[in-house]
Design a protein around this nucleic acid. Structure first.
Length: 514
RNA sequence: GCCAGAGUAGCUCAGUGGUAGAGCAGAGGACUCAUAAGCCUUUGGUCGGGGGUUCGACUCCCCCCUCUGGCACCA
């Protein structure tokens, strides 16, 4: 059995989760569930990043200990991911002893190997903001913004990681592993970045300025800062499990260069560890072209859609709408278009009419198909093509296209029903019509079963509910479920199920709501 | 400024050398099993602009314009 280790970025807990956090976890979950379906031994890690200046400041502002603060906010993130049906196998927090121990071990190892050295850091420091400033923080006239208060150039002893030393190795590695980063244009972006010489990386902060962190094992007057803390979670979580390297680290495009594409592989190289096999870089959800987050004051909180329309509708929209790696617009109107036309009208209504006709014309027991004429053959053929395209599309992270193909098949099933008109056949006593009626009921039910088998990793609860009302329990081997057959013969179906109720009439035609 | 991504029907996007596509929205129609859903037909585009290569370009090359993001020790 193939092992498959996949991670999300860990979320910084200084704030509440928003759509970007949710999307990344759902996307990772979709990949994880897909690999499990293919039979891989999947290990899915997510978690929270809990140290640093901002957390320390936020806790102080609320008058509580940092640990209490991160306990609360980390739980908030975790609750969201549970709500979203994110099937993580492990949830790591950087304040856990298991993580801190690995960080200290690694730092000690690198220090002993001469990969970390002490030097003086010279820079402009804002006492009010408790941070070093960069030249880009300056106003065009060269002065410092009022926000920073008094700014002075100071010198501070710190520890540095020998990044520059490994630059050539990294370039060589990326050249030889052309598919390290998905999508490919991101890798080109990294190569561009590496054309300029790297500087060594400052990895410490004096405890006098920052207490909330992991102390350096070789100098307890310092804590390590950001990189060796946050990035190492992917490794520390599985240090004793033999799972490293990860197959995929999923990240947003904002943390690719330089952290994940430069620091992270070099850190591992310095430790004598292999880099992850791949980085998968996703884009952002935009609203009016701006990155969506709480701070931009987005008019719609997309997470309320979960409460309004259900987890699966939300997951479906995220995966159906976003081309992995690109940015996408997020609007309530677009959500409603997908919800109404694809989930409610196309799929949900197919479920209901299948159940209703089976109940009305066959006493709720699915008959066997007896006839195979053009309408059946054409639907069978479309199924074969759909299934054969679907799996490679998912393997290539083209989930949005895969779901579109699945919906085309659902539409074709609705068309098939229209061609057979079972409601007319049901009124005929002719033996041929009765055979066609049984065939059409069996065919629509089987098509429905197959369609939702395809989307199982995106909408797992919906697939389970539809199987349940079809009186069907799927087998363990997912691929074996994808063959058109007679699995539903004799199944007793439910009378009705409205899976995706339509919203109030006012929102029936979203285009006019604008 | 440099680098990358994007610019195709009202909207969201697919197409990547051979007579412009889909979904949604709009218009018309037939039906009734169904969540007033589904089905059929249909309106709609000088494929950002300009050059070039080619028998032929949305598709290849060059220049330009617009939008978005990045340009490091912030994550």
């Amino acid at each position: 059995m193939k092992s498959f280790y996949i991670t999300t970025a860990i979320d910084y807990v200084n704030g509440s989760p928003h759509i970007g956090h949710a999307y990344e976890k759902v996307l990772t979950d979709v990949i994880a569930r897909f690999r499990r379906q293919l039979g891989d031994q999947v290990h899915f890690l997510t978690g929270t990043d809990e140290h640093g200046q901002k957390v320390q400041a936020s806790a102080k502002q609320r008058g509580i200990e940092p640990q209490q603060f991160v306990d609360e906010t980390s739980a908030e993130f975790r609750a969201l991911y549970d709500r979203l049906n994110v099937s993580y196998d492990d949830f790591i927090r950087t304040t856990e002893p298991r993580h801190k121990q690995v960080v200290r071990d690694i730092l000690q190892r690198l220090f002993a190997a001469g990969e970390i050295y002490q030097a003086e850091y010279r820079g402009f420091y804002s006492t009010r903001q408790e941070q070093f400033l960069q030249s880009k923080d300056r106003l065009p006239d060269g002065s410092w913004p009022e926000l920073f208060g008094e700014v002075a150039e100071i010198v501070e002893a710190n520890y540095f990681f020998r990044l520059k030393k490994h630059q050539d190795w990294l370039i060589e590695f990326l050249t030889e592993n052309d598919d390290f980063i998905f999508p490919h244009f991101r890798q080109k972006q990294v190569m561009e970045f590496l054309k300029e010489p790297l500087n060594d990386l400052c990895i410490s902060r004096p405890k006098a300025r920052l207490e909330w962190g992991i102390p350096l094992p070789f100098d307890e007057n310092y804590v390590t800062y950001v990189w060796f803390d946050a990035l190492l979670n992917y490794y520390s979580a599985v240090v004793d499990q033999g799972r490293w390297p990860a197959d995929y680290n999923l990240i947003g495009k904002d943390i690719l260069v330089p952290p994940h594409a430069v620091y992270w592989p070099i850190m591992l190289k310095a430790c004598g560890l292999p880099p992850p096999k791949h980085l998968l870089v996703h884009g952002w959800w935009l609203q009016s072209g701006a990155k969506m987050s709480k701070s931009t004051g987005a008019a719609v909180n997309p997470l309320t859609l979960v409460e309004e329309f259900g987890v699966d509708a939300f997951r479906y929209f995220l995966i159906r709408e976003m081309n992995v790696g690109q940015d996408s617009e997020f609007t309530r109107e677009q959500f409603l278009v997908r919800y109404n036309s694809e989930l409610a009208n196309n799929l949900g209504n197919l479920v209901n009419r299948t159940l209703n006709m089976t109940t009305r014309f066959a006493s709720g027991v699915l008959p066997a198909a007896e006839v195979s004429e053009d309408p059946e053959r054409e639907l069978h053929d479309l199924w074969t093509r759909t299934r054969d395209e679907f799996i490679p599309l998912c393997e290539g992270f083209q989930f949005h296209t895969a779901l579109e193909r699945m919906m085309v098949f659902v539409t074709a099933t609705n068309t098939y029903i229209q061609r057979r008109e079972p409601w007319k056949l049901g009124k005929s006593a002719e033996a041929k019509d009765q055979a066609l009626l049984r065939t059409s009921l069996a065919t629509m039910a089987e098509a429905l079963r197959l369609a939702v088998a395809l989307s199982q990793h995106v909408t797992p609860a919906t697939t389970a509910r539809i199987n349940a009302v079809l009186g069907y329990t799927p087998g363990a081997d997912w691929r074996a479920e994808l063959t058109w057959g007679a699995k539903l013969n004799g199944a007793k179906v439910a009378e009705a199920l409205v899976l995706f109720p339509r919203p109030a009439p006012a929102e029936k035609t979203p285009a006019k709501v604008l």
